[in-house]
Design a protein around this nucleic acid. Structure first.
Lengths: 339, 339
DNA sequence: TTGTTATTTGTAATCGATTGCCTAAAATAT
DNA sequence: ATATTTTAGGCAATCGATTACAAATAACAA
């Protein structure tokens, strides 16, 4: 077991001050080339590694950022994280990941822990149960830059990167209309979250544009679980007028809906077209591949990271608020394509 | 924007030394109850937050651990990470996640970065292309505890938590034999990794136990991608003697295999039974749910975390090496269940 | 009252790297 | 040869929390 080597060890060995060693290693202009070489050689030989904790303490920058998501095993979230990581890595940042499991209390706790971990920034997608923004203000109070992605709340001074959920809802619905569907059911998420409101609004707008009426009973609230999709279909198909399409705000419910429809002998896409949302991995791999909306998560992560970098490179007390809206991409597959 | 509050700020306010403040906050026995209360009250009022960087620098413990995996969006890995997180959270640790994308160079780099980030421990699953263990010794040299999970290499002094892949291979194959299959093909992963060797060995052993011979041409090397499963089946079905079962060391290839078999009009499971490996989320959701082997990833993560905690709580220079082997669980679904 | 022991708090060093300010030495000018 | 300007590098403080050791106060005994 080797002992940790510090700049003092180096300075002792080459008989120079630690200050010189530090400056040489940081390529400070006031250090001569010759000295720099001596120091670097010694550092290499002694297998010196910078202690990032000491550096962090001195500079006030931990070079760690936190990412708060509901779940890390949703392909959307893990992909956003990958995007953030890839963009931040060249700048020397590490990513600390926290999960809320869609629980507000967890979210508050995660922010608290991150804050006293001396984090340089926070990326987050709020959970479904989050109503107020008290905890977010706490981060702002401590001057920790915060960037929302996908699921956001309106908080002054906070930047965000989202997709245009309105447009996504609109395009998905319009696509179904173009396939000849006229009675489109919508499995909608928790309207506490903007994203689900917007998807719904887009759904409404597409109907309006094409002169179609919406049967209010066709809009069912679901919770992103397969079972929820199954029961939604059961409920819908008990009605006299039955839908000829299902636009689900979640891939998981779309999947449940499809399973239930098949069970009832309904032909997809001939009798009913189905679209999901998020482009989860499995949608592509199903025997009946599911149409979905791709939220370009890696790009979203990268841009969120850029927004963060831009923010911290700006002058200290300058509060920039940047809102980036990405365009969603329809991934049309067999579940909604009537050839 | 509030300024950060330090123990000095508190000490100034209540006119006591910073040492007393520190001790009071840490509930040091030599501080009187009265003083503790005064300090705590002031700390609360001033919204004091411990600076974990300073603490880390002083104590030499960053309370951060690193996890190195090939990909974070494989359900197996993200679940292991969840297990680690849950187990370590009560102890105040944070998890820093790194991906190698199955690339040896990345792996070396990730370890390097983690090491000079003053990490307290490393959890890792080595990548397919990793041949030597030089980088791992580096971690050991710096006295950073390392725990392998799932994919390991034999390195003295390194603990590991894995499943019994031999048994998994054995059970999966035996299950297929019990379904009446006699010509079982095996889509095998990179034999550079122990896990794939063991799965293969189990496959062989099950044949031996049941007095069946293996056609060597039935063992095909694949790379865990869907396409690989497709081409493997194409290749296998060109032979005179055709398999009546496929045991894939990966769910993705099993999926590809099924897609290709269906395309060729082969009935599953009537004509051919198929088993995958890893119990990826999608296996359960397919129209034809895929049988697979569950590696109990969350448990694996939790135990890996326990092994780590045990290690660091032991005396400094004591090198404990602990090997935990978990039992896999077959998840039998329609793709391999006849009748 | 003085000496002894407990109890509680303070002083100052430490963890490792960085940096403003200062000085010694070298280079240039007069 | 002396004065002035550059250049290179050292000293010491700093980031915030912890802790060995010392000191001050209180409590008690003789």
């Amino acid at each position: 077991m080797k002992e940790k080597v510090t700049i003092y060890d180096i300075s002792r060995k080459i008989k120079m001050s630690a200050a010189t060693v530090s400056r040489a290693l940081n390529d400070h202009p006031k250090i001569s080339q010759k000295t720099k070489e001596i120091v670097r050689k010694a550092a290499r030989e002694m297998n010196y590694k910078q202690n990032r904790l000491a550096q962090a303490l001195k500079s006030g920058q931990s070079k760690n950022v936190g990412v708060i998501v509901p779940y890390i095993n949703r392909s959307f979230f893990s992909s956003v994280i990958r995007g953030i990581e890839e963009e931040l890595k060249p700048n020397g940042y590490h990513v600390i990941i926290c999960q809320t499991h869609e629980n507000y209390e967890n979210e508050v706790e995660q922010i608290d822990t991150l804050l006293n971990t001396q984090i340089d920034g926070i990326f987050m997608s709020i959970s479904k149960t989050t109503k107020d923004t008290e905890h977010i203000r706490k981060a702002l109070d401590e001057n920790v830059p915060l960037v929302f992605f996908d699921r956001k709340k309106e908080v002054p001074g906070v930047s965000s990167v989202v997709i245009d959920d309105y447009k996504a809802g609109f395009l998905a619905t319009e696509h179904l209309i173009e396939q000849g569907c006229k009675r489109i059911a919508h499995l909608s998420g928790d309207l506490n979250l903007d994203i689900y409101c917007e998807r719904y609004n887009g759904y409404v707008a597409a109907h309006k544009k094409h002169g179609l009426k919406i049967n209010p009973k066709f809009v069912v609230k679901i919770n992103s679980k397969i079972e929820s999709g199954i029961s939604a279909v059961k409920k819908l198909w008990k009605m006299d007028e039955k839908p000829d399409a299902v636009f689900s705000a979640s891939d998981y419910t779309a999947l449940g809906a499809i399973q239930q429809l098949k069970k009832m002998g309904v032909k997809i896409p001939e009798e009913v077209c189905v679209m999901g949302f998020s482009n989860e991995i499995f949608t592509k791999y199903m025997e009946l591949p599911i149409s979905s909306v791709d939220q370009t998560p890696v790009t979203m992560g990268k841009i969120a990271a850029q927004v963060f970098l831009e923010k911290i490179s700006g002058s200290e007390n300058l509060k920039i608020e940047k809102k980036v809206v990405l365009t969603p991409k329809l991934q049309l597959r067999d579940s909604s394509l009537r050839s």
